[in-house]
Design a protein around this nucleic acid. Sequence first.
RNA 1: CGGGGCGUAGCGCAGUCUGGUAGCGCAUCUGCUUUGGGAGCAGAGGGUCGUGGGUUCAAAUCCCUCCGCCCCGACCA
Length: 606
Amino acid sequence: MHRWSKLFIPTLREAPADAEVASHKFLLRAGYIRQLGAGLYNYLFLATRSLNKIMAIVREEMDTIGQEFYLPGLLPKEPWEESGRWGAIGENMFRLKDRRGADLCLGFTHEEIMTGIARGELRSYKQLPQIWYQIQTKFRDEPRPKSGLLRVRQFIMKDSYSFDLDEAGLDRSFNQHDKVYRAIFSRCGLRFVAVEADSGAMGGSQSQEFMVYTDAGEDLIASCPVCSYAANLEKAVSRLGPLEEMAATGDGKPELVHTPGCAAISDVAAFFKISPASDIKCVAYMAERGFRGEGHEKWLPVAVFLRGDHSVNEAKLLGLLSASELRPMQAEELAKYFRGPAGYLGPVGLRPKETANPGSSPLEFAGGGDVIVVVDKSLEGRQNMVCGANQLDYHLRNVAPGRDFSWTLAADIRNVNEGEGCPSPGCAGKLVVGKAVEVGHIFKLGTKYSNSLGLRVLDENGKEVTPIMGSYGIGIERILTAAIEQSNDANGFWLPVSIAPFTVVVTITNVADAALRATGENLARDLEAAGLDVLLDDRDDRAGVKFKDADLVGIPYRINVGKKASAGQVELVTRATSTSVDVVLSEAVALVKKRVQEEILLEESD
RNA sequence: CGGGGCGUAGCGCAGUCUGGUAGCGCAUCUGCUUUGGGAGCAGAGGGUCGUGGGUUCAAAUCCCUCCGCCCCGACCA
């Protein structure tokens, strides 16, 4: 039996000053974790119990579709060179040398290693499909660790990898993961949503994230309250409402207008008495293609045009250009490519580069032209717009995209705004945007790794084929942090029974009273015999101290053994609702069991 | 890496501007009282003031170096 008096549960009355988000504060205060360094935490007793329960659920569910492995965290360079990621990943990978000077890294993710195993062993289509997974420590040299366990440099991940013969097989593996992930997060008591996600510059056809809404999260999610549409803002699209075009002036051709001091969109809109939606905003970037090392292309000029009331989504732009990095153009570059200053940039008169291979990825650009001109789709077909004239203090009006200027690419590169129309066909809902934390991600990889590492099997015709892969991740600590973020108050937090370090704490209000003590001991033993995880608070402290601690540390149920015990009664407190009921001592075990059972059923039915 | 902030007892902080005995609350230890919402009284322990250097009779305090941590921006579980 676990006796609080013998355990190391260092609770804090005050949170350390540098903890900002709720989960970070409470994990520290409740004695779950202690910080070792930036993005590095020691997990103490309670955290370890909770994480073990989470991993047990993950394992149980994953075992229904896959096989558990355990790979090294310390990895040689060679597989990463074969895939090209030794150079591509850059600073985010921890690198080291062994005593002989050989390059090694700390495991960041394991596509290369799993694919290497497959390459060495898989020979026939008859051996497919395979789903291999592991629960293992990952190391990432994050540019900025933050928010306690939410973003760290060492964390536990369940990662799995699927190998299939064809697209249909990949669909099955992907859907199996989708189903299993939903079961895992439900059983962990999370209120989550599955959203469409960006698959990044790496290609890949489909990508879905599992998100838990919380202000501590770093992602923005657009979702429709009417239908089931939900997407990461990096990927989200929307339907725009109808717009009234401005009337043309003069002969309807572009007309130069003196607009002194009107550098900002709001100034321009006020000057012309138009809505920002009728103004063309310009954002000028330099884009880097390829990655440092091989195949590196130097900075390319990119001019992005979109509606004045819209903003550029850099993730979409990166994907569109197959670029690895973006930075704003500097003043000399603006002068070179636009011959005009910031605030008065416009598309008219630019010479757009042409794409050498329209529609394919990665895009290549033909010679000729000065700058890659990207136009947001919402500008297509517009009339009589206002834009910068590429000279100080002048704008153009009566500008029609397509008639008065052309472009290299027209695509969706803007951020969705809250209130815009849901993109689902026939849906009239208006999108809402909320912050969320990512707890899982499932991803169709395609043949990137099987190709680069040379994984082939023979199909039924004896022909060599390249298996198609998926990769799938769950952040174990993030399940715990997300659970805390979604269930806390001023006094502490409460975890779902499934992942709480203990299910019930038996609080003996006064251990100096031998009768109370005996009652508490017996009750705790009976609860344990009934299969519950019990913590007996037998500390020689005042009742108030023990109540405060119990409220703090995330245990969902508490039984007070106190003044009514002599009358054969104890008190069952439900932390989530802060409500208590008196219960006859002899019925206490059954009641707790019933509550726990109900909660588990509720979570599993989500 | 760019920008902002911080580093003084286990935790939260004051002291730094204006150099001169290192302090407060909580926690800890001992004793007595108390015992259903972070007890009271009495006593005690605990500090290379992040590091290194400089200025000075004298540095937590002024100057420089380095290190660490937190927050805001580009990455991801």
